[in-house]
């Protein structure tokens, strides 16, 4: 979670910088042709799927316990 809040902070910082100077700064998520943004998006999607799988696993575990009774 710390990583994410740090990343979010970076994005926000960049946005405010952009607003103040009007010059696009090649820092953090804006560097290297903004490919980091794509990496972040894909990672977010994948983490979402992972959390979904974990939630499914837990629900099935619950059902297993109920049927065993």
């Amino acid at each position: 979670m710390k990583k994410y809040s740090a990343l979010l902070l970076m994005v926000l910082c960049n946005l405010s910088l952009f607003a103040q100077s009007g010059v696009e700064m090649a820092t953090d998520l804006r560097s290297s042709g903004k490919i980091y943004v794509v990496a972040l998006v894909l990672l977010t999607i994948f983490i979402g799927i992972g959390i979904y799988l974990i939630a499914l696993d837990r629900r099935i575990k619950k059902l297993e316990k109920e049927t065993k009774k």
């Binding site: 490919i35 794509v38 990496a39 894909l42 990672l43 983490i47 799988l53 974990i54």
Partner: peptide, 22 residues
């Protein structure tokens, strides 16, 4: 018992980052 599930998620997560940026 579910360490391998987390390992799988981490391996793919790593491959997404390293695969796009490496």
């Amino acid at each position: 018992k579910s360490w391998w599930k987390i390992l799988g998620l981490c391996l793919i997560g790593g491959s997404i980052i390293a695969g796009l940026l490496g």
